Amino acid sequence: MPAKALDFFLPNELNATLPPEKRGLRRDHVRMMVLNRCTGEVNHDRFFHLSHYLQPGDLIILNNSRTIPALLRGKWKRDWNELSQDVEVRLAKRRNEDTWDAFIMANPIKVGDKLLFSDELISTVIAEKENSPLKTIQFNKRGTDLYNIIYSIGEPIRYEYIEKPWGLDDYQTVFASHPGSVEMPSAGRAFSWELLFKLKQKNIGLDFIQLHTGLSYFDEHWELKPEENEEEYQLSAVTMEKIVRTKTDGGRVIAVGTTVVRALETAARTGNLSGFTNLYINEETPLKVVDGILTGFHEPKASHLDMLTAFIPEQHLLHAYHQAIDKGYLWHEFGDMNLIL
Rank of each mutant, 00 (worst) to 15 (best):
L215V: 04
L224K: 10
Q138K: 15
G271R: 08
W100F: 15
A127M: 12
A3E: 10
A190M: 12
L195V: 02
V174S: 09
D98T: 13
F103Y: 15
P226I: 10
L91N: 01
H52Y: 14
T17G: 15
F117K: 00
D45G: 08
D207T: 15
L273Y: 09
K135W: 07
M33E: 01
W100A: 04
L195H: 01
P156Q: 06
N12S: 15
A302W: 00
W331H: 02
F175E: 00
V244Q: 10
F311Y: 08
D170H: 05
V253W: 00
F191H: 06
S192C: 02
T124F: 10
G188V: 09
S216G: 14
Q234W: 13
I254Y: 06
Q234S: 15
N15P: 00
H304G: 05
Y329K: 06
T266P: 07
Y171C: 01
Y151N: 11
E231S: 04
V256W: 00
E41M: 13
G112P: 03
F197S: 11
E130F: 09
K93Q: 08
R37D: 01
G275A: 03
S84D: 12
T67E: 05
H212E: 07
A302H: 03
D306L: 04
N140S: 13
L308S: 03
D145Y: 08
H304D: 09
T17R: 15
F139A: 12
D145I: 09
V111E: 15
L318C: 06
N64L: 01
R158C: 06
E183C: 11
K242R: 15
Q323I: 14
P11H: 08
T295S: 05
N229F: 13
E183Y: 07
G257F: 00
N278R: 14
N96E: 13
T124C: 11
F197L: 05
E194W: 05
A255S: 12
K93S: 03
H322C: 11
T136G: 07
L264N: 04
V111H: 03
T258G: 09
T259Q: 09
E21T: 15
K141W: 10
L71I: 00
N131S: 10
Q315E: 14
A176W: 02
V256P: 01
F103M: 09
I68L: 10
H316W: 07
E333W: 02
G167N: 13
P69F: 08
G74W: 01
A187P: 04
P226C: 14
T17V: 12
V289F: 06
L196Q: 07
Q315T: 14
I157S: 03
A263P: 05
H298R: 00
S236I: 10
E21G: 10
T277N: 09
E241C: 08
D306Y: 04
L72P: 01
I340Q: 02
I204S: 03
M1A: 11
